[in-house]
Design a protein around this nucleic acid. Structure first.
Lengths: 242, 242
DNA sequence: CGAGGGTTTGATGATAGTCAAAGTGAGTGG
DNA sequence: CCACTCACTTTGACTATCATCAAACCCTCG
């Protein structure tokens, strides 16, 4: 019923590092099951000390923080292959919430086994640290755009990043990718109001840089979008998959 | 001449986890020397693949990113005990630059030894991952304030955080701590202009919440400052020291 | 057909950015 | 010891980006 790690559809994507048989076997044992959730389902709550961690296998979701005044900051968008819940395992408590945007299926791991898994191979421990360091890296980029770019650059930046991530996961066909989020989500990710996001999006559309509707995003001119964003395109590096 | 880890002045601060003799000894061997730098000295450059990593022993500094248009985003302020350069070790390249604000002395570690050190004990590997996860956690908080709070809340938030960090390091006496940064640094950390930061700072001063001059920060009313920031005060947890 | 979630548009106003210039204080050199 | 410079802070005036408010529009769904 559940996907065997041996047949994991993610692992075959070129973006993911190869695994040794041994690692594969250990990961398989670490995996305790699968979770299928409907759109809108909360997966982890900020401040919670969740007993489980996950890897997104299919579907998309959001990480976000809610401030005392009720404002929401979207930390990032969750794509297949993302490891979820590391903070709870390492720090005993999540710094943000996670929820499913589409229907999702997640590989479930038991926190009680996490330490053993971490210890089971130095390479895997390294992988986990790599993931944490990479998150930090990307968050720094995000912080820089939210702090420094104006609305049109920020939105262009976000879509370039999103599109590139999707490409590495094989989600893009003919310049089109699934993007099942709301304008409000993008607004909350970039610290912009919904109205302003909408109007800025309209400008990008008018400039023929992208089209986004019906949960589908089409990038017409990635290079020009990157120019609007005033960003340097980064090389894509292979990454580990847990 | 250099500080022996056994006599490390940081380790005795209650905020830092105890180390076993074995860990202490391994850390000692990992440490390859000390670096003393003057204010303004660049320590690591964004994009560089530095051969060394550091732990801040004394002094303060900045992590920041520079955008193509020349704008600068300060990622955070570096305090004693901070581990610097993990990204280069894990990802092969720094996502941000680091520079000294005051005179600093740094423990130097060789990147070539990093993997061995990481492997030398699971507890240490865990510590390193813990640090990465914690950075991610704090960065998420920062992103939320830059994205969602207005200037006065954001600045109040920043000073509460800074003050609390300083307290854990024993840097506060009578509500006063060293804070050797410029208004421009704070502005760049929060995505605000220098002028607006200055005027907002003046408002906080007029409200008798804080005083900051001569590289010295005095918090008059931390609770009220936290109220202005609309933040919940977090419990302080012990943390590892590398 | 009405309800509800999401998107779009217009109008208005405030927060924050930009520009410019003056003030302050430490450090330097004549 | 007194200009003079330089880095940083402060203030005022003006501008604009972006938030807020409100309402219409569009689609899907029951």
């Amino acid at each position: 019923m559940t996907t065997d790690c041996k047949a994991c559809p993610l692992r075959s994507q070129p973006i993911f590092d190869d695994m040794t048989q041994d690692e594969l076997e250990k990961t398989r044992r670490f995996k305790s099951g699968e979770l299928a959730v409907d759109p809108g389902t909360p997966i982890l709550m900020e401040g919670s000390n969740a007993p489980q961690l996950y890897t997104a296998l299919r579907g998309m979701g959001l990480r976000y923080k809610t401030l005392p005044d009720g404002n929401r900051q979207v930390i990032n968008f969750i794509f297949p292959g993302d490891f979820i819940g590391l903070q709870a395992s390492m720090l005993g408590e999540m710094g943000h919430s996670v929820e499913a945007t589409t229907h999702m299926t997640l590989c479930v791991f038991d926190r009680g086994d996490f330490f053993d898994f971490f210890r089971s191979s130095t390479a895997r421990a390294f992988d986990i640290t790599w993931l944490a360091a990479t998150e930090e890296h990307f968050l720094g980029d995000t912080l820089a755009t939210v702090g420094q770019r104006d609305a049109i650059s920020a939105i262009a930046w976000a879509f370039v990043r999103i599109f590139q991530r999707a490409e590495t996961l094989g989600l893009v066909r003919n310049g089109v990718m699934p993007f099942p989020f709301k304008q409000q989500d993008v607004a909350d990710a970039l610290g912009l109001s919904l109205v302003h996001t909408n109007k800025t999006l309209a400008r990008l559309r008018e400039r023929q840089l992208l089209a986004w509707s019906d949960n589908t995003l089409k990038i017409h001119d990635l290079a020009e979008l990157a120019t609007v964003a005033d960003m340097e395109l980064e090389a894509v590096k292979p990454r580990p998959l847990i």
